[in-house]
Amino acid sequence: MSVLTTVAARWRVQAHLDFMWMTKDLRFFLINVVGDVILNLAGVTAVFLLAERFDGIGLWARDQVIFMLGYAALVRGFLDVGFSYNVLHISRRIGRGQLDHLLVQPQPLWMGLLTEGFMPFSGCWSLLTGAGITAWAVVQLGAGFPVQWWLLFGANLLASCAMALAFSFLWGALAFWAPVAAEEMSSRAVGFLYQLKAFPLDGLSAVVLTGMLTVLPVGFVAWYPSRQLLGIAAPHLWHTPLAALLLALVAGIVFKKGMEHYAQTGSQRYIAWGHRG
C-alpha cells in the first residue's frame, strides 16, 4: 500500500469517527456548528469593526481588510478540519502523557499526527465561515482575478496553514521538557496567532516586524500573503511558502530533539480526560 493510499485510508476512518461524533445528538450538533461559526467570526470581528470605524486601516482599504480577515479565517478553518483532536495543540498530548497512545500504533509518528486530527464534519463550519468572508471580500473588491492568482492564493494559503502548525509544534515541543508548565503552550501560542492573525502589521517598527515574521510569525498567517496578493506590496508570492518550509524544518528539528528527550524521560503523569478530544 502506498503512503498516499494509507493516509487516505486513515483519513477515511477518522472522517467516519468524526461524523458519528457530530451526529450523536441534535443539540450537540447545533451547539458545535453555531459555536464554530461564532468563534471564527469573533476572531476577526475586532479588526473588522476597526476597519469599519476608520474606513480602512492605514494602507488597507476596508474591503482589502475584509479579504485579509477572510484569508485568516480560512487558515483557521483548514486547521480545524485537518488538525483537531489536540494535534494542533500538541503540547497537551505531550504534557498529559497521551503521546504514548500514538507510539504504540504501527505507523510513523508523522502519519499519526497527520491523520488523527482529521475532522471534516465538525471542522468544516469554521472553514465555510472563512470561505464566506473571503468570497464576500472578493466580490466587494470587484477585481476579476486570473487563474494564476487563484493558484498562488491556494499555495500561500497552504503555506500559511503549515506556518501556524509548525509554530504550534515548535512552541508545543517545550512540553517535552516542562510537561506541566507547558501543557497549554501550544494552545497559548496558537491562541496568540489566532488573536493577532487579522491585524495589519504595517505600522510596526522594523525590529518588532522581524519578530512578528520569525519568533511569532503572525505576519505570515494572513497579513504578508494578503498584501502581496492584493498588490499592496511587491508580489513576492514565494516568500510565505519559503518561510513555511524553513519554520517547518526548525520545528521538525526541535520536535525530534524533544522526542529523543521523551525517549529518555517518558511521561511521569497521565491525564485520562481530554484524550482524543
Binding site: G58, W177, V180, A182, P200, L204
Partner: peptide, 30 residues
C-alpha cells in the same frame, strides 16, 4: 504553575509583549 521551568513563563511573557507591541502600533496607525 511555578513548579516547572522558568523559561516557559519567560516565553509566555515574550508572546504577550509582542501582542501589546502590535496593538500599540495599530492605534498609532489609525
Amino acid at each position: 504553575s511555578l513548579d516547572d521551568r522558568g523559561w516557559v513563563l519567560a516565553g509566555d511573557f515574550g508572546l504577550r509583549l509582542l501582542r501589546v507591541l502590535l496593538l500599540l502600533s495599530l492605534w498609532r496607525t489609525v
